[in-house]
Nucleic acid binder design. Sequence first.
RNA 1: GGCUCCGUAGCUCAGUUGGAUAGAGCAGCCGCCUUCUAAGCGGCAGGUCGCAGGUUCGAGUCCUGCCGGAGUCGCCA
Length: 590
Amino acid sequence: MNIFEDFQARVGVALRAFAAAGGWPADLDLSRFAVEPPREAAHGDLSTNAAMIYAREANAAGSNPRALADALAAALAAMPDVETAAAAGPGFINIRLKPEVYRNVLVAALKQGADFGRAGKSAEGKVNVEYVSANPTGPMHVGHARGAVFGDALANLLAFAGREVTREYYVNDAGAQVDVLARSAFLRYREALGESVSIPEGLYPGDYLKPVGAALAREFGDALRDQPEAEWLAPVRARAIVAMMAMIREDLAALNIVHEVFSSERALTGADGGPDWVGATIADLRERGIVYVGRLPPPKGQPSDDWEDREQTLFRTTDFGDDIDRPLIKSDGGYTYFASDIAYHKSKIDRGFRALIDVWGADHGGYVKRMQAAVAALSGGEAKLDVRLCQLVRLMRAGEPVKMSKRSGDFVTLREVVDEVGADPVRFIMLMRKNDAPLDFDLAKVIEQSQDNPVFYVQYAHARCHSVMRQARIAFPSLDLEPAALARADFRLLADEGERGLMRAMANFPRVVIQAAEAREPHRIAFYAHDLATLFHSHWNRGKDASHLRFVNEINASLTNARLGLVAATASVLASALSLLGVNAPAEMR
RNA sequence: GGCUCCGUAGCUCAGUUGGAUAGAGCAGCCGCCUUCUAAGCGGCAGGUCGCAGGUUCGAGUCCUGCCGGAGUCGCCA
C-alpha cells in the first residue's frame, strides 16, 4: 500500500470537481501536483502543493488560490481516515492522518513481507539493463565494480518497481584487444611447454593467463607451437575468451552479480562464419540514406599528426542530435566499435525492448549522443536509450591514493578488494554515492567496523531487530512471533512518537522505491535504509532511560506483541531495502 | 577551443524532479555502558548553496554568461 499514491488520487478527484465547477479548460493536465511528506514533521503526515500549482488557473476562472486550497482541504478533511487538513504557509495543504492509517501500513508490511513496497506490474513494459561489459582480456578491476554494482542495484530496483528487467552483458570479443589477448596466451602456452618467455611491451603480462597456457598445452600438446599465427590465432583466441569470461563471471559472482544474457560482439560481425549482422545493419541504414560516404573535418583541439583526410563510410548521426557524423569502417577495412555497437543495439530493439539502459564509465561520456542517435534511427524514435554514467573510482588506502598502473604488480583487481573487505561494504559504499559524483574508495575505512561505516550501521539495525525478537522469545516463550500472527496485534498501543516515526518512515518506503526507480538512482535506497536505521537505533536507545519504552515489556504481553510487530516490520523493510542494494541483512553481527 | 558532468558546513556527501526555517556522517567540544549487543544514543558549534544576472507566487534545484575542477574530442573499446 502506498498512501502517497492513494492521496494523489484523492486530491485529483477533488481538484477535478473544483475545475469542473469553475469551468477550467477541459484539456488541462490536472496531475502536475505532488503529495509528499512535509519536510517539517510538525506540518503533519502529508502535504500537497496542488493549490499553488493551479493558482493561475484558479485566478483565470474568476476564483483564487485560497478558495481552491480551502475547497481541497475541506474535501480531504471530510474523509474518514483524515484527522485534519488545512491550508498553510504559501498555500500548502497539510494533512494529518488518523493513526489507523499507519496501523494498516504496519499490517501490510508484516503480511506482505519482502513484497511490501513492490509496485504493481508496470504498463511501460520490459527494460534492458546493460552493465559491466568489461573487455574479456583480464580480471575486473575496481573501476569496473562501480558500474557493476550500480547496474545490478538499478536492475533490482526497476524489477521491484514493476518493470520486467533483463540484465545483459555485452562481450567485446571482436576487436584488436582480443587478438592481443590471444598472442599473450600463446606465449603462456609456449611457457607451459617448457620455454622460458618474456612478455613484450603491448601484450598482457598478468599471471592470470598462465592457466590458459597450461590448458592449451594439455589440449594441443606442441601441435600449435611451430604453426604460423594465422593457424593458431583463432583457436587460442576462442579458448582465451572463454577462460576470461569464466573468470569475470566468478568475479561478478563474488559481488552477487549475475547477468541473464551475454551478447557476443564477435557473433554480430560474422567473424567466425555466422551471418554478418553488422554489415546487414549498415546496408539497411545505407538504403534509408542514413549511411553515406563522405569526408569529416579534422578533429578540433589538439592537432594530431596521423590525421589523414579520406573518404569513409559515415553514419548521419547529426540528423538525430549528434554533433558530427561518425565513421563505421576503419582504415583497415574492419568495423569500428560504433558500427558493431549499432548492430548490438538493433538486436536489443529486435528482441522487443523499447526501453534501453546502458551503464558506462564517465570516460565514455562523449559516446552517448551518437549511441542515442543510432537508437533513434534504428527504431524510428520508438526506442529510448538512457545512458547512466558512473564516475571513476579513486582507490585509497588510509587516505593515500593507491596507484593503478597497467603493469601487473600495481594492478588492484576487484577480486582482491572483495576478498579484503567483503562484498557487502563494497556494494553499499559504492551505492551511497550518486552515480555521477566521483567516489573515493578507501580500503582502510571500508573494512573498518565502526560508526564511520554506514554498512555496518544499517546491518546492525537489522541485527538489533532480530536480537529484540530473540529476547522476546526468552521472556514470552509462548508468544507467536511469526509475521502473520504479529499482524493481528493491537497496534493502537503504539502511541509513542518514536514508534510513530518508524511507522511513518515505513509508509514512505513504497514511494521512495518508485521515485528512485523513476530517477534511476539506487543511492536513494541506500539513504533511505540509513535513515530508517537511524530512527530505529534512536528509539531503541530511548528505552535505556525510559524503560517503559522498551520493546519487550515483561509484565505486558499485548503491548510487547504490538511492539514486536513494529520491530518485525522494521526488520522486514530494512531487509527489503538492503536486498535491493544486493547487501545481506544478517540476523546477528558476530 | 567544442561537448558532458561536478562545485552545498573544516572534510566526505544528501537535498523528495520548483516548495515552508538548506540536512546527515566524519573531525571538534559536552554528556550517556549494573541496559533488549555502546558496531549504539543525546546535545553544542559550524553556511554569501562557486560568482553575476534571468524566469515566477517561490530557485541549492530551471535558463544565460563567467570562474574553478574532472572526463572526452575520426580509424581503442
